[in-house]
């Protein structure tokens, strides 16, 4: 029998602190797909906030830390398109002038995948069926979409695995206004953008909003909950793993 592929799971700092359920869903899905999952405890943050703030020195330190923490795995998988994009696209840019680390960054980039596209494109797995009798609408997060080309993969997995009905909103690929530090630096503009997005989502028949990046989902869910919209927000992995039975992100769990 072939050796099971080893996967280093980089949960990302947001999932780690704000929504562990996504981390557990990722582990479950990867194990279901026959991977041996390891969660290195040396991981912290991929460094994206520093990189996007122009702090290159800190980004490089965090990138080196990540590269070292994830040495030796067949694959490195993240339940986030924007963090995966940082490892795949931006780590090599960070070390453009440093051949030793550039080689390591290149090696990591070659092994790194966003969770949903990994399941769909690389493993091409059939997941165990999940009953989720809901109408959902999908938000395409910008980095995943434009840096990694993630668009059809989550839809394909959802259609093949679950019983949900997808009711697409208009402009699925317009930014929700999160933008990392953008949303706290320019809260008024961000608020307008998230409101525009939520109003498009609300025009569908969906009561569930899905996506693949917790940053965007926290933004959407946090705003929806403030406005009292009847929308439950989940990461796609939670639905695929059959772990989306609660009130969703920012929702009130009835215990």
């Amino acid at each position: 029998m072939d050796k099971r592929p080893t996967v280093g799971l980089f949960v990302t700092c947001l999932v780690d602190t704000q929504r562990p359920n996504i981390g557990f869903a990722a582990v479950q899905l990867l194990e279901q797909a026959g991977c041996e999952v390891v969660v290195p405890t040396q991981q912290t943050c991929c460094g994206q906030p520093a990189w996007n703030s122009g702090d290159d020195a800190s980004s490089r330190v965090l990138a080196q830390q990540t590269i070292t923490a994830f040495e030796g795995f067949d694959y490195v998988v993240l339940p986030s398109g924007s963090c995966a994009g940082t490892l795949v696209k931006h780590y090599p840019e960070m070390f453009a002038d440093d051949p030793t680390w550039l080689a390591k960054a290149g090696d990591l980039a070659g092994r790194t995948h966003e969770l949903l596209s990994f399941l769909c494109d690389v493993l091409q797995v059939e997941l165990s069926p999940v009953v989720f009798n809901e109408t959902a609408t999908y938000h395409d997060s910008c980095s995943g979409l434009r840096e990694l080309g993630i668009k059809e993969q989550p839809r394909h997995l959802l259609a093949n695995t679950t019983t949900l009905t997808l009711d697409e909103m208009e402009d699925t690929d317009t930014c929700c206004g999160f933008g990392g530090t953008f949303c706290v630096k320019y809260p008024d503009i961000s608020e307008r953008m998230v409101d525009d997005k939520l109003s498009l989502a609300s025009q569908t028949g969906a009561r569930v909003l899905l996506g693949g990046d917790l940053g965007c989902l926290m933004n959407l869910a946090g705003r929806a909950s403030r406005l009292g919209l009847p929308l439950r927000v989940f990461h796609t992995a939670e639905v695929l793993a059959g772990m989306a039975d609660g009130a969703g992100i920012a929702g009130k769990e009835s215990k």
Binding site: C142, G179, F182
Partner: peptide, 8 residues
Amino acid sequence: HACTLNGR
């Protein structure tokens, strides 16, 4: 800075 870097 007033940009979400959404790449569109």
